[in-house]
């Protein structure tokens, strides 16, 4: 009975959605966003349109996005209890993983660095590099490598906030210099974008990794439970 009701509701919704998409698709082209972006590319400081949109034309979105990520990480960490990151129970006892790690970790760091650097001229950039870096961190964690910087102390807090802080600093400095908020000074766009991207990569990786670490440990030990094992 409930299934039928939900199915009918979803079918009606799907028909409305498809109809709307069809109607919008049939309308004559209104906007000229790609042309606008292509015209402004020369001033953006980078050669890849998506990176230019992310870190120059619409950098306000990116600034708020890293803010959202930091808030999510803070909420996740505050839920967690991190008794000991070196708890042997949390490690995978897999010899294959240990053996592969020595080969994969340097390679993955290299890939992350390359993705970050490539973002200026071709697909790549801070988000992809941050994701790869976070994946590397997850692999390190599963293999039980020492990662003391993930304890909720000063280093973790600085690492989480660094990307947002640097981004905001650049924005405020350029605003204080007489430009608009988040407008890069003439000729400085490329180095500033690269600087912001490096710290964004680090912060995104830290956020994702700390959320991964916070998830399994939080249930580890309530004080009331027996610790007999």
């Amino acid at each position: 009975m409930r299934l039928a009701a939900v199915l009918v509701l979803c079918a009606v919704f799907a028909m409305a959605l498809v109809g709307t998409v069809w109607q919008i698709a049939g309308q004559p082209v209104g906007g000229t966003l790609p042309e606008t972006v292509a015209d402004a590319m020369a001033d953006s400081g980078v050669d890849h349109p998506v990176t230019a949109v992310l870190l120059n034309f619409r950098s306000y979105d990116t600034l708020l996005e890293i803010g959202v990520l930091v808030i999510a990480a803070i909420a996740g960490i505050s839920m967690a209890r991190l008794p000991s990151l070196e708890d042997p129970e949390l490690r995978t006892h897999d010899s294959l993983l240990h053996a592969l790690q020595r080969w994969f970790l340097p390679l993955m760091w290299l890939v992350a660095g390359y993705l970050l650097w490539a973002g200026a001229v071709q697909p790549g950039g801070a988000f992809q590099a941050g994701a790869v870096l976070a994946g590397t961190g997850v692999l390190m964690r599963l293999g039980g490598m020492p990662m003391n910087f993930l304890q909720p102390r000063l280093l973790l807090r600085v690492g989480l906030a660094l990307g947002f802080a640097v981004f905001l600093l650049v924005a405020v400095v350029s605003a204080a210099g007489g430009d608009a908020f988040l407008a890069y000074p003439e000729g400085m766009a490329k180095p500033l974008i690269l600087l912001i991207e490096i710290f964004l990569t680090l912060s995104i990786a830290m956020v994702l990794l700390s959320l991964f670490v916070a998830a399994p440990v939080n249930d580890a030990r309530e004080p009331a439970e027996g610790e007999s094992e």
């Binding site: 619409r58 959202v68 990480a73």
Partner: peptide, 27 residues
Amino acid sequence: QHRNGVDPVPQALVLTGIVVAIAATAL
């Protein structure tokens, strides 16, 4: 992209959205 051809603006928006979605999922 159906209307405008390859368009970097929605692509950048979606890239932002994917990263926010994974953070929300993890939380």
